[in-house]
Amino acid sequence: MTDTPDPFWWQDEDTRPRRVEGGIQIRNRRGKVARTWWSGRFLSVVECLGIGGRLSRGRSYARAGQIVSLDVDAGGAVAQVQGSRPQPYRARIGVPAYGKTEWTQVLDALAADASYAAALLAGEMPRGIEDVFDRAGLSLFPATARDLVMDCSCPDFAVPCKHLAAVFYVLAERFDADPFQILALRGRDRETVLDDLRARRGSPAPTGVAPLADLLDTYFVAGPGLGERIAGPRTPSDALLDQVPEFPVAVRGASVVELLRPAYQALADPDGE
């Protein structure tokens, strides 16, 4: 007679995760993870799914550095998350990436509004950018769980599991620091977006700066007329003393200003020439 395996055999194992040396972890040790409105919008989808226990454990995983690796590319993010087993689990969060036609509509609209372009060129996510995507019939952030593809190699039946939840929180903190990674999920990385915006607005991309050693011959060049002013009569070094109000006291019957004058003259011509 063959024993039938328990479908939940994995729940009897030690569920404490194995420690990871040098794992990816979020810096926020307590409270809300998202610090910007855009990462908050990204997290709002997963946080409204009503799986509070797994979300809490996911935050603990993210804070403990249980994520071994995380790669963000067009269409999704793939992570290796260390659980209780020796082999890390593979967790993937996928979103639809947009093609050239869709991005042309979005970039044309962003370039047409100077405030959008200025914010993006400054490394920020403009608040109205969601409206730009909406008018093109697109969505920047996933609106519901149906807009996401989530899978994990762990045996947990829930989606998202704590490993996927940990990836969401690490992604949110990455988005805080670099909002362009949200755009990268949709198919356009930072360099491509900025280059396209500059091209549409007629602003050339910044070029490299020449080394200072190559500019020394021309760096300090006198402007028009400055050479004549420098070559003209020099102001006497003791002229400042003539602007000093008369001291009310004297030193051994001599004026303080006159006592100081030889010293000022010597500083200007230390060789006595």
Score class of each variant (00 low, 15 high):
Met150Lys: 02
Ala143Ser: 13
Arg174Met: 09
Ala143Asp: 14
Val33Trp: 09
Val209Gln: 15
Leu226Arg: 13
Arg41Val: 00
Gly52Asn: 10
Asp269Gln: 03
Ala254His: 14
Phe220Met: 08
Arg16Gln: 15
Val95Phe: 05
Ala239Cys: 03
Ala122Asp: 13
Ala114Tyr: 00
Gly253Cys: 10
Gln82His: 15
Phe175Tyr: 11
Gly99Tyr: 01
Val209Met: 15
Leu183Met: 12
Leu194His: 11
Glu228Gly: 11
Ser84Glu: 14
Ile51Arg: 09
Asp176Cys: 00
Arg186Ile: 01
Glu102Cys: 06
Arg198Glu: 07
Asn28Val: 14
Pro224Cys: 01
Gly94Ser: 10
Gln265Gly: 09
Leu43Phe: 04
Leu216Phe: 14
Ala62Pro: 03
Ala263Ser: 06
Ser39Glu: 11
Ala239Leu: 07
Val106Thr: 06
Met150Arg: 03
Arg19Phe: 10
Val244Trp: 00
Ile129Tyr: 03
Asp108Gln: 07
Arg59Asp: 04
Leu197His: 11
Gly208Pro: 07
Thr218Ser: 10
Val95Cys: 07
Cys48Ile: 09
Ala172Tyr: 13
Arg27Tyr: 04
Leu171Arg: 05
Gln87Tyr: 00
Leu107His: 11
Pro224Val: 01
Gln66Ala: 07
Leu215Gly: 04
Trp37Leu: 07
Gly40Val: 01
Asp3Leu: 14
Gly202Ile: 07
Leu171Cys: 00
Thr144Gly: 00
Leu121Gly: 12
Ala213Arg: 12
Trp10Met: 12
Ser60Pro: 08
Phe157Leu: 07
Gln243Val: 02
Ile230Trp: 02
Cys161Phe: 00
Ala79Ile: 05
Ile26Gly: 08
Met125Tyr: 13
Val251Gly: 01
Gln265Pro: 06
Ala64Ile: 09
Val249Leu: 14
Asp131Arg: 14
Gly94Cys: 03
Leu267Gly: 04
Tyr264Met: 15
Gln80Arg: 15
Thr15Gln: 15
Val193Cys: 03
Ala222Cys: 08
Glu13Thr: 11
Cys152Pro: 11
Ala239Asn: 01
Leu259Pro: 00
Val251Arg: 08
Leu120Tyr: 02
Glu13Lys: 10
Phe141Gln: 11
Arg54Trp: 09
Gln11Arg: 10
Ala118Met: 09
Tyr264Trp: 14
Val149Cys: 07
Ser139Cys: 03
Val72Met: 07
Ala205Thr: 13
Tyr169His: 10
Leu267His: 03
Val249Phe: 15
Phe180Met: 10
Arg261Ser: 04
Thr235Arg: 04
Ala239Met: 02
Ala143Lys: 14
Gln11Leu: 13
Lys100Phe: 01
Phe8Cys: 02
Arg57Lys: 13
Ala158Gly: 05
Val106Tyr: 04
Gly76Met: 02
Ser237Gly: 13
Gly137Ile: 10
Cys161His: 03
Ala266Phe: 08
Arg59Val: 13
Asp238Lys: 01
Gly202Ala: 08
